[in-house]
Design a protein around this nucleic acid. Structure first.
Lengths: 214, 214, 214, 214
DNA sequence: GATGAATGAGAATTCATTCAT
DNA sequence: TATGAATGAATTCTCATTCAT
């Protein structure tokens, strides 16, 4: 109806987009079934190509998996860092904004599935876990730790250990991602709305973090 | 013809004869490698028996997996309920005690791996997820929800939504289990001591839960 | 409809346009790796063309192989016959000249590899073996048998069976080709210089052939 | 009819013999089709077992191939050395006996096929070529060289270079093996009887070797 | 009960061949 | 003519499952 390039034959039209299509299909399958249980034939089918085509772009299953993880990670990281750099409100507000935005931007994004993959399959791909830790966990943690330090320095927060508190703040968000990817599709667990969960968690924690009024 | 226990479901029928070693070895392998990547030959080797022997006790790989999960779950859940029933201190103290004991009794044990299995493999075993939710998540949640309700009723806690707050309280402990099982062996992440993490998390949250002094 | 040369067999019809580079590259690969292990992509790469181009000149892998063999064979055999026809010296000298020239003209050339191919792969290509026997083995043998018959008739040689003695004379030269193509690249075997080998072999055999002095 | 152990089930009866049966079937197929063109399923079928059984005994195709070569070589070598050690006749007679016996014992034996394999596939298995050279070619050559040296020392033979003459003596026998394995099944080439060929070759060469009567 | 040799369905991978450009 | 992306049949290899002892 609309664009003339849609009349190009499938073969040509997709040439450039192929790798991305393959990676997207592969990510879906890996997240849904796990690494070992994912059949390359299914990945190919979901990408609308034949088995052999996968091997034109990726050496083998393991390399495809690594590419999926790396690609998803690289494509996402960086955004949050930019957001944090320009923020001007109080530390509490920044913390809330960061966690909320993290959720919104990551759950709408394949990287949420990558987190599940890393937790579920990490044992068999230590290099990937290392990469994921450095590129995602460490950078995300640094962001939050920085806000905590700023809030403590300004007297807005109690003098907690920023490193530990960073973990405490990250854990529920990650868990929410896992729940969303794992239990909810199967069993409606947890049955709460993600935003309600996050709001309750953040509000409670921020109260707990608040420096006592003298 | 013979014994009335023959009418029990298969996985339970053989319970008496079923060596715990098989289940322990299977749990180890499933947690370490994931369901699909676990080879029954390895399970047998780790249990010190032959491959064929596994089939004397379990119909097939899937039933073995289910037995592992069920067995671990059933063995754990009753204890916490008893503990909670007889506790007499404040709701805050009970909450702290419950979460700490949960950690100590589950993470000191290979059973914690079941949580990882459920999150990682749940998609392929919906019945197990359902079972796990009913026998573990629901009962554990009810315990915590009860304490919250008691604290709110007594004016010790703010009037939060007990169901949501229950999730908020559970998530960090589960995440800690995942981290311990997944990232730490590979990459020393998170580098904090579990008890410090839990103490920080619980203390902060309890302050946040505390009803404001009038 | 068009040209009478369309009635020629396919492998010959395209002879004019068929780049010798394709055949040369294919010969190299077939000799080095064997028929089955040779990948058409490698042949194409060595010839500096794309995979598809091969199919413009050869129906399929098997036809390419046959063309390689036929082309090499046809290019070689006529020369020796001409040489022999005009020779004027003694039978001994002719024999030595023929064998030496065979060696020099064939072993200095990749065409020698065809012999290896025939011995190694002949089982799977009986028509080719037949062709090779008729066009190379039979004609070459006839040449040598003729010289033997002439020498026996003139009293220069003992009255041996010319057919058998022909085989005896051919075998070491073929073996030398095989050694050169197979063992020497891998393992320096045999460590003797080809010309020394041939000279020793021919000299010894000619003494053995010599009619006893009365 | 005869032995009671024939009533044992196939499964048990063959347990010990399995590896040898597999190696024999594999040798047949490798010699007939070449390494790359041999399908393991065919090897299995010829051995009367299933595909999977091969992998109980050999890690993969390459290891099976290597085992075939090594086994055949080891099983054969040594016999000729014993024969030579006890021989007492003239050097000419010993030489004739060695070559004839070599032919008779090797052509009745799978090692003849191994020679073809080494010549045809050696390029892709350099370690095997090295092994074959050391265990078969070198030891066989040493045997013949020794006889030549003895004959030269005793004045029975002309003072030829023993190393080169050894190659000259070996080549026709190897070629005969190749012919027998490659061309004869397909095309009756060479059409001479092996013993006539050998006799003609040996007789002629021995005359050529003979020291001239003074 | 226990064993482990054997099986064969299933998954990964390769590569000759096609075909739209 | 020439290209090279795409295909899918064929092959290697794995591993859950069986079964004779």
């Amino acid at each position: 109806m609309q664009a003339p390039q849609d009349t190009k034959p499938r073969w040509e039209r997709r040439k450039d987009a192929r790798p991305q299509e393959l990676l997207a299909a592969a990510l879906d399958q890996f997240v849904e079934r796990g690494y070992a249980a994912t059949r390359l034939e299914d990945v190919a089918k979901h990408a609308g190509v034949s088995k052999g085509t996968l091997y034109l772009y990726f050496t083998n299953k393991e390399e495809l998996f690594k590419a999926v993880v790396r690609e998803s990670i690289v494509a996402t990281i960086g955004q949050a860092e930019q957001d944090a750099a320009v923020f001007e409100g109080s530390s509490s507000e920044l913390l809330r904004a960061l966690l909320m935005r993290w959720w919104d931007q990551i759950c709408a994004t394949p990287i949420a599935g990558v987190t599940k993959l890393m937790l579920a399959e990490g044992h068999n791909f230590p290099e990937l876990v290392k990469f994921h830790n450095e590129e995602v966990v460490a950078r995300g943690s640094a962001l939050i730790t920085g806000v905590l330090q700023r809030g403590i320095a300004s007297g807005e927060f109690r003098p907690v250990d920023p490193a530990v508190m960073t973990q405490v703040l990250i854990a529920p968000v990650m868990m929410l991602m896992m729940w969303t990817r794992s239990f909810m599709p199967a069993c409606q667990m947890p049955p709460v709305d993600p935003h309600v969960f996050l709001d309750t968690f953040i509000s409670t924690t921020l109260v707990g973090l608040e420096a006592p009024k003298p």
